[in-house]
Amino acid sequence: MAKEYIPEKQSGIGQIIDSIFILVLVYVSLYIPLLMKSDAAAEAVKDAPKPTWESLQLSPVVQEQWVKLGYDAEKAAALINSKFDYTIDPMMLLLTAGIIIVYFVFMLKISDKEYREVISEKFGDK
């Protein structure tokens, strides 16, 4: 039977510090994308002439639905002309894929090592 591991007891202050640490980490992760400001957002075409229903070339039924929703031609054009850009940066894609793969490999390797300790203590050495 493997020697039983006796964990140290954590103090109250230690528990508070650990709780705060994980919270701070969450908030930092939430705000980092704002600092980077690089996430894709739909962008409207700039410097276009003032739109009309005719210039938008919508069918009468589609135009009627826009009007029912409370939109005039100008407001509707702002949405109709907004486009996402799905251009892929290969380096960023490789970097992102690499980070996700490294994360899972690291986690599975360390987990396996820890799991063997658990099994060894629970069932004894093989």
């Binding site: 992760s29 996430d39 986690m107």
Partner: peptide, 21 residues
């Protein structure tokens, strides 16, 4: 990645740091 690439990286960063911690 196509829509929220930097958020994806930031969140992965969170889980990596938390795992090391």
């Amino acid at each position: 990645f196509l829509g929220y690439g930097s958020t994806l990286l930031s969140i992965m960063g969170f889980y990596i740091v938390a795992s090391i911690w």
